[in-house]
Nucleic acid binder design. Sequence first.
DNA 1: TCCACCTTATCGATAATATCGATTATAATA
DNA 2: TATTATAATCGATATTATCGATAAGGTGGA
Lengths: 305, 305
Amino acid sequence: MTPLPTLRQLQFFIALVRRESFSRAAEDCLVSQSTLSSAIKQLEGLLGQQLIDRSTRSFSLTPAGEEVVERAEAILAMSEDLSRAAKGVEPLTGAFRLGVIPTISPFVLPQATKLFQETYPRLQLYLREDLTAALADRLHSGLIDAALLAFPYDIRGIESIDLSEDPFWFACAPEHSMASRKSLKLKDLNRTELLLLEDGHCLREHAIEACKLRNTATVATFGGTSLFTLTQMARSGLGATLLPELAVRSGLAKSAGLVTIPFEGPVPVRKIGIAWRKGSGRREEAEAVAAIIGKVLAERHIFAS
Amino acid sequence: MTPLPTLRQLQFFIALVRRESFSRAAEDCLVSQSTLSSAIKQLEGLLGQQLIDRSTRSFSLTPAGEEVVERAEAILAMSEDLSRAAKGVEPLTGAFRLGVIPTISPFVLPQATKLFQETYPRLQLYLREDLTAALADRLHSGLIDAALLAFPYDIRGIESIDLSEDPFWFACAPEHSMASRKSLKLKDLNRTELLLLEDGHCLREHAIEACKLRNTATVATFGGTSLFTLTQMARSGLGATLLPELAVRSGLAKSAGLVTIPFEGPVPVRKIGIAWRKGSGRREEAEAVAAIIGKVLAERHIFAS
DNA sequence: TCCACCTTATCGATAATATCGATTATAATA
DNA sequence: TATTATAATCGATATTATCGATAAGGTGGA
């Protein structure tokens, strides 16, 4: 491919045409006259044509020079446009694909989507609800841009920021032996059969971990497929359960007719955060998403209750 | 003034996008991988934006990268135009990249390339066969210098000149009910099932348009992938078809054992012409190409028959 | 899980070049 | 012929582009 002139050379040339003088053009370009002079000569050599007519005292362009001026100006203008456009791609315009786990999704998204629309009207937000492992895969393969997850969760190759802590609450039917308690300690759980979500839901692991449920016998083998079915199972007396505060605040337990009891002492929690692929250049956007979700999470009562 | 990216950086970036790999792009640019890598990083620093997503094995651009690609291509194309225009080189010496659509290519190129060699011995003619839409893209991005296309076809930013009209002929197997006709009118087509090329081939659209095949029921849904397979399908009794005279004259129908029948009254045609990027300074060269192709088209019998 | 492999990033050394200040050459003018 | 303004040239220096080698990171297979 034929070697191209340098944008710098074109800038010099345009300045030269504008000022009609090597020395004045050099001033404009903040270089010495000799620099500009040699650069022009270089450009002429590259193009194989004389661009300015040095034969007369008055400044004039050769036909080739005339030919070049307009194009050079256009090219420079386009280059500036490119710079500006590249710099000005503000976050969250266009498509953004966000993955959310099922134990967060129903309690955050209704409010969040509304906020997204208001804050980033040019955003097209695609949502995908799936388990953490599946979302991690999709993050890696670039099928989603960020994910709203619960932590701790070890995924290599992703970065994340924490948004908030989400404490666990004890929830049981009013007939349950512990239903009248005002608060619980972790060790109280040892005596109780607990219903948890089925394998794969990180909420299950987080509950086991945070509540130190070493004694797996206390954990019912039949897992719920969603927090909604789980609360229904609890209501029908199959056992008590652990719900994230996020769900409690949204009225999940209440609407299922369950009693909720907080923990005291070391309160078991999971963390909620935003994760994105390391090196994806989505940090800024992920932080913007985090800000929105953070606002939603900060509302004490997600549903009026 | 904000510092501009270097054309070299843009070239590197475009090569990177094209090859989807740092190392392969570096080869194309005749520099080492480290050079290209750091140049890209430099460009990203300059623009203040990450341009490509380095986190996945699969190559993908960030939004900012998408934004930059097109502009960069345009800038580079214009820069090449500037070089060429300034140099004022005589037409058709050195490299010339010509795109041709598949429904013209096999019937013109064998003769044309010979003529090119004789007329412009210093010409290196690179040929690319592709569908109109793909060729239009390549015209815009400067990957080809001109294209031999069939018209009408609306592409912004290109100029073109018409070379000749290419009438459609009716072609069918000898056993076909219309095989004995001496000539046809357009309305005769309404009663016949027609095989056309698959979507994307402009010949299909041109046939439908020129022959007023409003009644889509007459057009077989299974499209041929080339005129050669199409004639084979017609020969085996799947239906009749419409062939451009260019193909008929080259003996395509005859060698496939098809009967060809001309139209009378309003004869349906497509136009053949040369297109080039507006402002590319290729008009003169395109006209020279047009002259060559025109000669080939003017020969009544392309193959002795 | 570990390991070999492929791709990209980084580093230090070197070559290329851009730039400068000083000087010289050129041409128009007094 | 001197004078003045302008541009070209030259040698020195600073910048940078580039390379080869190597490290780092991720992928896919044993």
